[in-house]
Nucleic acid binder design. Structure first.
Length: 598
RNA sequence: GGUUCCGUAGCUCAGUUGGAUAGAGCAACAGCCUUCUAAGCUGUGGGUCGCGCGUUCGAAUCGCGCCGGAAUCACCA
């Protein structure tokens, strides 16, 4: 079924050509939704066309309106208000559309097309020295949701994760465990592995600070003390041993990392996300070095007198950037160069999207430039999906000040609150405990995910624990609630033996609310594709909310099951069904599960 | 200081390639449970879209300049 928008687009173009003898630039044809206060569904803005018509706005609109009305059967009327041509689409069109959408299980989605290469989405990217926190949750949800949206848009997506499992910060927690751990393991203490390792990282920092202040008391300057404290020297020594492959250190490293991975897996599982391919920096960090040395040989990069290797971007208004230290070791940028190349070798994706916080905007700008300098044609396919920080009402999260919101604790809290509120409302009586727990989990996680995703990624956002647990208004549970109520209508319809027909009659006359809902559903495929193109899950979230809010008003106004006219009742049931279907699909794109009851 | 991003109702956020009288929720107040689930619905109040200038038929949206906030500018990751 050809959608009315594209029919109109072509018709307006034809009209301008036949009336004014000129083919208009497609950008001049601006179709938009008609505002509530006017009659009609679709509005053509005629101002851009005045240069071609050389008539007043009203006369131009009248010309075009008459042409369209005569040529498109589905446009039944029109009216002109100050240069806006409001078109009334026939009820018949929307009812045909409704029939079609209700029978298309893939409505709104595009099936994977041809072999134009996969899109690689990198997200999460944790360090293995501490557990995941609220900032990671925003990252993970964005990355996973974006992957779903791209898939729905017909792309093949490879979800990837680069684990930062090596470096001085890892050695710090290893060292602290050696010194003060007494052989503690997750099994012995019952602690989650990533939390256990995180505790030793904190312990290191505490002891290190003590040492530094002791040295300062003895008259040493703070900067010097930070470099000469025994603990940091020991950690650096441990890093050297790690790089040399020292057996004991490697064993400890592998053991502690395995605890952390087990913990991360648990957190990922609860968040409902997964990866197709995980890279480890301990395996990829060496690759960048070769690429850099190759660039040096081709004179794309330069070596300074002390032996360090640099990329000179001064001709592009940027600075120089070090890629290999004077001792020949690689830096963060070098690792990312290597990882990017490795990914090209492994998958040759048509695009690589990095979901990384906006504090690294400069880093990714430089990364793309350097890869381009090095002559990789895929350098321009890199895209940094930058997102803002998550702030708390008290200000920024600071691990040192203990104001970090832990991911696991937060999920527990959300689920517990969902349980309290559900039990207060008492709607789940009669279900067994397993079913109830599953519903509490779905609601709590839905609240959290929706809260994080409804905000435009580019913006810093405020995480207010009290509000996030609120289930009223523009929230995940509100959407879930509306969905379950629609499902409940269907259960009742079955009990009453009202059979839903395969299609509704197209000579019905839907009321304003019904037509408005159909229009909203009509937009769904456009929203999915737009969210994919702009890498913005918040578009989906806000769309679903609009749809559901509209449905609630509709639901409140009409008693569907008590409707006496069976044809109207059928139409409302089918409309409800399509709304539920689109709502579920939209929420699934956000990674949010839907309960059957709540 | 340079660069990038953000600034919309008391609070949290929407607002499509520039379009008509800028929208929701929360909070406040007033209503609605004998209807398929009140986690809902209806109504009232609440705005110099940070400020100024410009571009044009038209600016929350584009450009320039200010003001406020954030990030970044390491031989850290």
């Amino acid at each position: 079924m050809q959608l009315i928008d594209s029919i109109l687009n072509k018709s307006v173009s034809d009209c301008i050509l036949s009336l004014y003898g000129q083919s208009p630039d497609p950008r001049l044809i601006q179709l938009q939704k008609t505002r509530r206060e006017f009659e009609g569904e679709i509005t053509l803005v005629v101002f851009p066309l005045l240069k071609i018509s050389r008539k007043t706005p009203d006369n131009t609109a009248l010309d075009i309106g008459n042409y369209i009305q005569n040529n498109i059967p589905d446009i039944v009327r029109f009216n002109v208000v100050k240069g806006f041509l409001n078109l009334v689409v026939s009820d018949n069109y929307y009812l045909r559309f409704l029939n079609q959408a209700s029978q298309d299980s893939m409505f709104g989605f595009t099936t994977v097309s041809g072999q134009d290469g996969a899109i690689m989405v990198e997200y999460s990217s944790p360090n293995t020295n501490k557990p995941l926190h609220l900032g990671h949750i925003r990252n993970i949800l964005l990355g996973y949701s974006l992957s779903n949206i791209l898939t729905a848009g017909g792309k093949k997506v490879i979800m990837t994760n680069i684990v930062n499992d090596r470096g001085i910060h890892i050695c710090k927690s290893m060292l602290a465990w050696q010194k003060w751990g007494n052989g503690e393991t997750p099994e012995k203490s019952g602690k989650k592995g990533d939390h256990l390792v995180g505790e030793y990282y904190v312990r290191f920092d505490q002891e290190y600070k003590k040492q530094v202040s002791l040295l300062v008391e003895k008259g040493m300057k703070k900067e010097e003390a930070e470099k000469k404290a025994d603990l940091i020297l020991e950690a650096q020594d441990m890093l050297r041993k790690w790089e040399a492959g020292d057996a004991e250190i490697m064993f400890l490293w592998k053991t502690m990392n395995s605890w952390v991975y087990k913990g991360f897996d648990e957190t990922y599982r609860r968040l409902g996300v997964h990866f197709d391919k995980i890279y480890y920096e301990s395996e990829t960090w060496v690759h960048g070095k070769d690429v850099v040395l190759d660039g040096l040989a081709k004179n794309v990069l330069v070596r300074h007198e002390d032996g360090s290797v640099w990329a000179d971007m001064r001709d592009q208004g940027l600075d120089e950037k070090v890629l290999l230290r004077s001792d020949g070791t690689s830096v963060y940028m070098t690792q990312d160069i290597g990882t990017a190349k490795l990914r090209q070798i492994d998958f040759s994706p048509q695009k690589m999207i990095y979901v990384v916080g906006n504090e690294q905007n400069y880093h990714f700008k430089v990364l793309a430039i350097i890869l381009d300098m090095l002559g990789f044609p895929w350098a321009k396919t890199l895209h940094h999906l930058s997102y803002g920080m998550v702030e708390l009402p008290e200000g920024k999260m600071k691990s040192r000040e203990g104001t970090v919101v832990d991911a696991d604790d937060l999920m527990d809290e959300m689920i517990a609150t969902a349980q309290e509120m559900s039990q207060e409302l008492g709607k789940l009586e009669g279900l067994d405990d397993g079913e109830k727990d599953n519903i509490f989990r779905i609601i709590g996680m839905g609240a959290l995910k929706y809260y994080m995703l409804k905000v435009d990624p580019v913006k810093n956002m405020l995480f207010n624990p009290r509000e996030s647990i609120d289930f009223d208004g523009n929230t995940g549970p509100f959407i879930q609630y509306t969905y379950t109520r629609i499902r409940s209508v269907f259960r009742k319809a079955c009990e009453m033996k009202i059979f839903i027909p395969v299609s509704v009659k197209t000579d019905l006359q839907p009321n304003d609310k019904e037509k408005n809902l159909m229009r909203l559903v009509h937009d769904f495929p456009v929203i999915v594709s737009e969210a994919g193109n702009t890498y913005n899950p918040s578009l989906i979230a806000n769309y679903v909310y609009d749809l559901v809010r509209e449905y609630n008003q509709f639901y409140h106004e009409f008693s569907i099951l008590k409707e006496e006219n069976p044809e109207i009742r059928d139409m409302r049931l089918i409309l409800s069904q399509v709304v539920a279907d689109v709502t579920r699909k939209g929420m699934e794109l956000l990674g949010i599960e839907m309960p059957e009851r709540m």
